Computed example of a mutant assay.
Amino acid sequence: MTRDLAEETAVAMVYGGSTQAVMMASPADLHDFAVGFSLSERFVTHPGQIEHLEIVEHPQGIEVQMWLTEDRAQALAARRRFMAGPVGCGLCGIDSLAEAGRALPDLGASGPVLAPSQVVRATKDLRRWQPLHDMTRAVHAAGFLLPGRGMVLAREDVGRHNALDKLIGAMARQGVAAGQGAFVLTSRVSVEMVQKCAMAGCAVLIAVSAPTAHARRLAEGAGITLAAFARGEGFDLFTRPDRIAGGFDVA
Rank of each mutant, 00 (worst) to 15 (best):
F229H: 12
D157A: 08
P116V: 02
G223V: 09
A222M: 10
D249R: 15
A98T: 04
G169P: 04
F33C: 04
I244M: 07
W67D: 04
V152D: 08
E233D: 11
A219K: 11
S96H: 08
T123H: 10
A28T: 14
S18C: 02
E156Y: 01
T225I: 06
T212I: 10
T239R: 00
L53M: 15
E8C: 06
S40K: 02
A245N: 03
S190F: 10
S40T: 10
P147R: 15
A78C: 02
L76Q: 04
Q174N: 15
D157L: 05
G201L: 01
A142H: 01
G201Y: 03
P86S: 15
A6L: 05
A203L: 00
L205N: 03
R72L: 05
G111Y: 07
F238E: 09
A6W: 04
R3C: 04
A100G: 05
L104Y: 09
P47A: 08
A103V: 11
R231G: 03
S38G: 10
R72F: 03
A230V: 15
E41T: 07
G181I: 09
S117L: 12
L237V: 05
A34V: 14
S187T: 07
A228H: 14
T136G: 07
W129C: 03
V184L: 02
Q20P: 00
G90N: 14
G85C: 06
K196G: 13
V35I: 13
Q195T: 06
R149T: 15
Q60C: 02
V44A: 03
E7Q: 13
G223Q: 01
A78W: 09
A172R: 07
A172V: 14
A98V: 00
F248D: 12
L91A: 08
Q60W: 13
A172W: 10
H58C: 02
E63L: 04
R217I: 11
A215S: 06
V152Y: 05
H161W: 12
E220M: 07
L114M: 12
P147I: 12
W129R: 06
S209G: 05
G221W: 11
L132D: 09
H46E: 14
